[in-house]
Every structure is written in structure tokens, then in C-alpha cells.
Design a protein around this nucleic acid. Structure first.
Length: 580
RNA sequence: GCGCUGAUGGUCUAGUGGCUAUGACUGAGGCCUUCCAAGCCUUAAACCCGGGUUCGAAUCCCGGUCGGCGCACCA
């Protein structure tokens, strides 16, 4: 079994993760999170909230998973998130229709299916595989389509990303944040893509969880006031240049900014934040790198884009987070589609006096004179400079026709105007996390098998999920040394006390103590509390550390606080009690 | 979507026309047991789905589903 199989086997067996609809044979691209998996996933999401919502102040919102057509026309997903496919009528092989004709016509991807069919017919293009006749081009859109309402209804799509729900709420959000840049908003939720052929288990899903932040910033102000927090963090960066030599480089965030490796400070801050998050939840730093998108790989509107890539044994380097400066593309696209202004008014620190040349045509006279053309003529007049306007008779050309305007109908002057601000379409910096991929990576990085000495001198193997205590689904196992009433009663009291403190504890009295330790090792429970006969005498218990298997003895009275501090890494294990 | 390949208790697996389906681990109940998967007893649990061939199909054939690999695809 390779690493992937071992991890997936454990995940299935112990209730983390499995293929959905197994009862009916399963369906590719869908996975269920079991009792431990859901808990682990939620803990990952909550740490994400801690960083993005609580620490960064990007409040979370929740928008529908179904979107209307306009939204995805504006975002480009209706037109661009699909591929025209051509199937061979003989052998059944499917091809990208636009690829087939790209040698004949340059703008192949801009053609309609009918135009594509015509070109294929005209140039007598046949199946590259068997030479058979090609069928008509059909659109395969990666979005799940549905109808809203009964009958013919209106088209709806399951969202392919959570981002659009935040862009379309720009005006309300801007008001909420009292129209001051920068501000950000986040959303954790499901997105859907009808993948043609999803494989690789949880790495490519048809329904998946995204955690996205949309941060709206001033295009002229891409520094970050808190950059000092991360300046000295060392990251593995695989820049465009580094990719030419194939060697990722380690450097501090400060170096990356100063050497213009990352486009700007604000983006650098977001990359550092992602690095911080991934390591905090337990991604191994040596299996993490940030790879810059190559020029041709980046969306045309993006200034810079970096993927957090995580090493997984079977899949290699896998994209788990994308962090991009998307400029004003999304807001402009929705502004155009909706005919609404998606911008904020940015007040200057000090009002500026601007000298301005103003032309004032006398519309009361211009109107009757030129009738329907009056507006166009006036617009043309605005474009003229002082010299042209000083003529006896001023002429402008509108729709190829010359109009002569007597100078007395026009006045002009240079005025000084006070301008206190300007309208700005913010740029968007977007970190976009694929939670399911991160979830799997976390399990794989935590997965360990190690030899342990056993009684009969034979070496045994134990499986340990070395999850960070902060993300481990079960936080404490409470185990009476034996299943006797005198031990089980105080043990159950401890479970109750821990529950009241918000600690998820499990109770287990079946089989030997060793077996129960192993069971908990396998699901990553970081601490085990054992109640023995000494407990009855002196009110103390032992706490066992999962990774070292060492134990300390500590008092029951302060147990829930001791464990809470251990779980949240406020104290060291050796200081949690008297070492045994 | 194409080609190759596989699918047996919860997990891993033996069996390849005669089945009442092998074994291990795990689970449950009990005995024993004073800290790392010990032992003993009891017990639960499976042939991916649909068709065909055959007296008889888990086994052979066809189709589907799911997994793996290669190709294509991967905002």
C-alpha cells in the first residue's frame, strides 16, 4: 500500500472520510466527511476564521450556492468556463473542438459551435486518432445548471466558486465598512464543478469546500501597515524566474518584496498569512512551497498570482491555495453587466485645487439651432481648446458633417475648482483555499507508523496520526485503567467536567489500556487521561502524551484547565504535572 | 470521454464453473488483567449492480457503476 492508500484506508475505517453514496455503488467526485472528519474539518475552518475573520477583520458572509445567469455571464463562467467538445462518430474519442481548428483560425475559442462545425466541414477535419467523421461541437460547461422556479423558469447555476457572491454584494459591503478602503469579506462554503473526469479522490471533487477572502484595496496603495508581523518569516518561493532553473528558493518576506519577486507588499502579506495558517494547522514546512503563476498561466487581468502547493506522496505538488491580485476586473465586469457603479469615493487627505478649463455653450440657443444634434455638438465643443474657441466662428464635425457655431453662443474660462476626492474602483486581492485538499494533506502529513518495543521483545508497529492538538477531532481520551465501577465512576465525572469546559473527550473502558491508547493514537487524540487506583487515594490522574507516550501525574481539580492549556499549546507537556 | 486493469465481511485478503465462501485484523459481550494492540470463551459481519450462457455463476460473457494506471480534460 502506498501512503495514499494507507491514509484513505484509515480515513474510511475510523470515520474521517469516504466516497459518497457507497450504498448505491458510489459516484465519482463526491465524498462524505464522517464523524471525525467533519470535526477535523470544522476545526481547520475555525482556525481559518480565527486568522481571517477575527485577526484580519474580514467579516464572514453567506450567499446562495445557486446563482442566477447574469452573475456568471458577468464573471465569464457562462462563456469561458466551458469547452466545446467534438466527438468522433467512429471511435468515440472526444476532442476540444477549438484545439482541432486552432491551426486554421486564430480566434478559435471565440467562435460559436455552429461556426466551429462549419470550419470543420469546410476544411475536412477528421478524427486525429482514427480518421473518422467528427460529430457536431457541443458545449460542455463545467457548471451544474438548473432551473429556478417551475416551468421554463430562469436559468440558475450551482456556483463554481464562492467569490462571486461577495463581488455582487460589493455596494452593501462597502456601506457596512463605511466606504473606507481597504476592507475585506470572507465566505466558507460549498462550490460545484461538473468535472469531466474527476479522479484522485478528494483532490478533485465535483462538490467541494472553499474558504475565500475578497479584499478590496486602493489601487494606488498596495502597501500593508502590518507587514512587520511577517517580514522575517522564511518561505519557500518558486518564482517565475526560479521555475526556469527548477530550484525554489528560501527567503524572507522582506527579501521577496525588496527584490520585486512578489508584485507588492499587500500581496506578500497575504502569502505570508497563508503560510502562517497552513503551518499552524500542521502542514509540514518542508512540504510546502509558494509557486508563482507563469505569465501565460495567469488570467489576463491578474497582476500576480501565487499558489500554495503542498507535497503529497501520490500526487506530487498540489495547488491548495491561490492568492491573486485580480485588479478591478471582477467589479468592472459586474458594473458593466448591472449598469451600476461599483466603486467608492475616496476622499483626499487635503482637498486639491484643480485648474480646469470650462466650456459653457448656451444651450438655450444651441438647442433650437441644431435640434437633435445639439447635444452632440455641445459635446464636441467641450473637447476644444482655448485657441479654437477664440475664433469668430467655431466649427465642429459631428457624424461627418460640419457645424458652424457663432462665438457669442459660447463662453469659456479657466476656473479653479476644489476637488475633495475621487471615485476609485478597488482592486481585489483574493486568497482562495481548497479546504478538502488541505484536509487530506493534513492527514497525510500527520500519518506516521513507528516501531515500538513491546513486552516479548518483539517489535510492534503503531500507527499515529500526529495531528496538531488544536485540530485533532477528539481532544482527550478518558480511560479507567480497568472497567471496574470504582474507576469508571470518577472517569465519567472527568468526561463531564471536560465537556463543560468545551473539550471534546471520549470515554473508553473496553479491553486493555494499551489497546485503548493505540486506538486513540490512530485517530490523533493528543492526550489520554488514565484513572487508576492511586486516583482514589490522592485525587490525581496521569496524562499521556500521544507523540512521546510519556506520562505526567497531575491533580484532578485543575485537570480541565491543564488540558485546555495543553491543547492550545499554552504550556509544555513536561510542565503539566509530575513526570513519571 | 477513450484504452488497459481491478472490485469478496468494517479493513486487508483466499478461492477462478459444484459453496454450506478462507483467513487475519477490527467490532460487540464475557472471563482475566494495577499503564502501551497479551491470553481465553462467545458472537456479529461479505461475493459491486443489471442482463446473458449453463442443470448449476462469486467464478465465464455483455452492459453499467466505482477504484487504479495511461491518453484527453483540469476555471
Amino acid at each position: 500500500m502506498d501512503m495514499y492508500e494507507q491514509v484513505i484506508e484509515l480515513a474510511k475505517r475510523r470515520g474521517f472520510l469516504w466516497n459518497s453514496f457507497e450504498l448505491y455503488g458510489g459516484t465519482a467526485g463526491f465524498y462524505d466527511y464522517g464523524p471525525l472528519g467533519s470535526t477535523l474539518k470544522r476545526r481547520i475552518e475555525n482556525i481559518w476564521r480565527q486568522l481571517y475573520v477575527i485577526e484580519e477583520g474580514f467579516m464572514e458572509i453567506e450567499t446562495p450556492t445557486i446563482g442566477i445567469e447574469e452573475v456568471f455571464v458577468a464573471s465569464g463562467h457562462v462563456g469561458g468556463f466551458s469547452d466545446p467538445l467534438c466527438e468522433c462518430t467512429e471511435c468515440g474519442e472526444a476532442y476540444r473542438a477549438d484545439h482541432l481548428i486552432s491551426g486554421i483560425i486564430e480566434t478559435a475559442d471565440a467562435l460559436s459551435n455552429e461556426e466551429v462545425d462549419k470550419i470543420i466541414l469546410e476544411h475536412n477535419i477528421t478524427c486525429p486518432e482514427c480518421g473518422g467523421k467528427l460529430g457536431n461541437a457541443t458545449e460542455f460547461n463545467l457548471m451544474f445548471q438548473t432551473k429556478i422556479g417551475p416551468g421554463s423558469g430562469r436559468n440558475g447555476y450551482l456556483r463554481p466558486e464562492t467569490a462571486q457572491g461577495m463581488f455582487v454584494n460589493f455596494q452593501r459591503l462597502a456601506k457596512f465598512y463605511r466606504e473606507k478602503l481597504p476592507f475585506g469579506t470572507t465566505q466558507i462554503g460549498k462550490s460545484y464543478r461538473n468535472e469531466i473526469s474527476p479522479r484522485q479522490g478528494v483532490i478533485r471533487l465535483r462538490e467541494f469546500t472553499q474558504a475565500e477572502a475578497e479584499i478590496f484595496i486602493d489601487p494606488s496603495e498596495k502597501t500593508h501597515p502590518e507587514i512587520a508581523r511577517f517580514e522575517n518569516d522564511v518561505l519557500t518561493l518558486y518564482s517565475q524566474d526560479a521555475q526556469k532553473t527548477g530550484k525554489p528558493e528560501s527567503m524572507t518576506i522582506r527579501e521577496a518584496i525588496d527584490n520585486n519577486i512578489i508584485a507588492h507588499e499587500f500581496l506578500a502579506y497575504q502569502i505570508a498569512l497563508a503560510n502562517n495558517f497552513l503551518q499552524r494547522i500542521g502542514i509540514s514546512p518542508d512540504k510546502l512551497r509558494f509557486r508563482q503563476h507563469l505569465k501565460d498561466e495567469m488570467a489576463h487581468y491578474a497582476i500576480d498570482c501565487w499558489d500554495a502547493e503542498i507535497w503529497m506522496e501520490r500526487f506530487g505538488w498540489v495547488e491548495t491555495v491561490g492568492i491573486a491580485d485580480r485588479t478591478d476586473y471582477d467589479l468592472m465586469a459586474h458594473a458593466k453587466m448591472s449598469q451600476e457603479e461599483l466603486a467608492i469615493y475616496k476622499e483626499y487627505d487635503h482637498p486639491r485645487m484643480i485648474r480646469k478649463f470650462v466650456v459653457k455653450p448656451d444651450m438655450a440657443k444651441l438647442g433650437p439651432l441644431f435640434r437633435k444634434k445639439a447635444k452632440a455638438v455641445a459635446d464636441e465643443l467641450q473637447k476644444l481648446d482655448e485657441e479654437s474657441l477664440s475664433q469668430e466662428e467655431i466649427s465642429v464635425i459631428v457624424e461627418g458633417e460640419e457645424y458652424k457655431i457663432p462665438s457669442e453662443l459660447i463662453t469659456f474660462e479657466e476656473v479653479e475648482e476644489k476637488v475633495s476626492g475621487e471615485t476609485v474602483v478597488p482592486h481585489v486581492v483574493e486568497p482562495s483555499y481548497g479546504i478538502d485538499r488541505i484536509f487530506y494533506a493534513l492527514m497525510e502529513h500527520a500519518f506516521n507508523t513507528e516501531k515500538v518495543a513491546s513486552d516479548d521483545a518483539e517489535e510492534e508497529e503503531r500507527t499515529v496520526l500526529k495531528l496538531k492538538s488544536e485540530v485533532a477531532p477528539i481532544q482527550v481520551a478518558v480511560l479507567p485503567l480497568m472497567g471496574k465501577t470504582e474507576l469508571s465512576t470518577p472517569a465519567k465525572e472527568i468526561v463531564r467536567k471536560l465537556a463543560n469546559r468545551g473539550i471534546l473527550a471520549s470515554y473508553d473502558e473496553s479491553g486493555t489500556i494499551g489497546r485503548r491508547y493505540r486506538r486513540n493514537d490512530e485517530i490523533g487524540t493528543p492526550y489520554a487521561v488514565t484513572i487508576d487506583y492511586d486516583t482514589l487515594k490522592d485525587n490525581t490522574v496521569t496524562i499521556r502524551d500521544r507523540d512521546t507516550m510519556k506520562q505526567v501525574r497531575t491533580s484532578i481539580d485543575t485537570l480541565e484547565n491543564t488540558l485546555f492549556e495543553l491543547i492550545h499549546e499554552k504550556i509544555r507537556f513536561e510542565d503539566a504535572g509530575v513526570p513519571l
